[in-house]
């Protein structure tokens, strides 16, 4: 997709906020026919602008415990490939939720999830740490999450007591 027009931009924004809004409602908001909305979403997916529709889950509320850790890696870049080949190898592991090249003391910032701390420790020591070109790792267990993907995880906002009527 070369350039997203204003309607695409608004559509993407709406879906980022809530990907379950039914098509007729999106159509009414955007002022275009429902069929056009469907077509635009298909195109956005085909072009890789929209990668996946998913849900943001608060594990602490779900009762299904999960442990996450941030793993920072110092890496010796490869001639011709830089960090890309190693980063892609790491990214392919199921346990890895995100991989990012960053500035600063470390080079790669990796988010890993597992059932418990042992599982993460084993994964890092067996699969990540021994990789060639990794010079140093620092693992930070996430103790509590306050905001994920722009969504507050603080319990539901009270919002005060709104009156039923005001003029």
């Amino acid at each position: 997709m070369e350039i997203m027009n204003a309607t695409d931009t608004t559509l993407v924004h709406l879906l980022e906020e809530n990907s379950r809004i039914p098509t007729p409602e999106l159509a009414a908001m955007l002022g275009v026919p429902a069929a056009e909305v469907e077509e635009r979403i298909r195109t956005l997916q085909a072009e890789g602008v929209i990668r996946r529709f998913t849900a943001i889950v608060d594990r602490s509320s779900s009762g299904q415990a999960e442990v996450s850790a941030i793993i920072e890696l110092k890496v010796s870049p490869e001639r011709d490939h830089g960090y890309d080949r190693l980063a892609e190898r790491i990214a392919r592991f199921e346990e890895v939720r995100s991989v990012r090249l960053i500035t600063g003391t470390y080079d790669l910032h990796v988010l890993v999830t597992g059932r418990d701390m042992q599982e993460i420790a084993r994964f890092v020591s067996e699969h990540i740490a021994p990789m060639e070109r990794i010079r140093e790792t620092a693992t930070h267990i996430i103790m509590k999450s306050y905001k994920e993907n722009g969504t507050l995880m603080l319990g539901r906002d009270g919002g005060g007591e709104r009156q039923p009527f005001s003029f």
Partner: peptide, 13 residues
């Protein structure tokens, strides 16, 4: 279970 469209103020904080 009232849905109030009677309030002249934003629902945002």
């Amino acid at each position: 279970d009232v849905i109030s469209l009677g309030v002249g103020e934003p629902d945002f904080s």
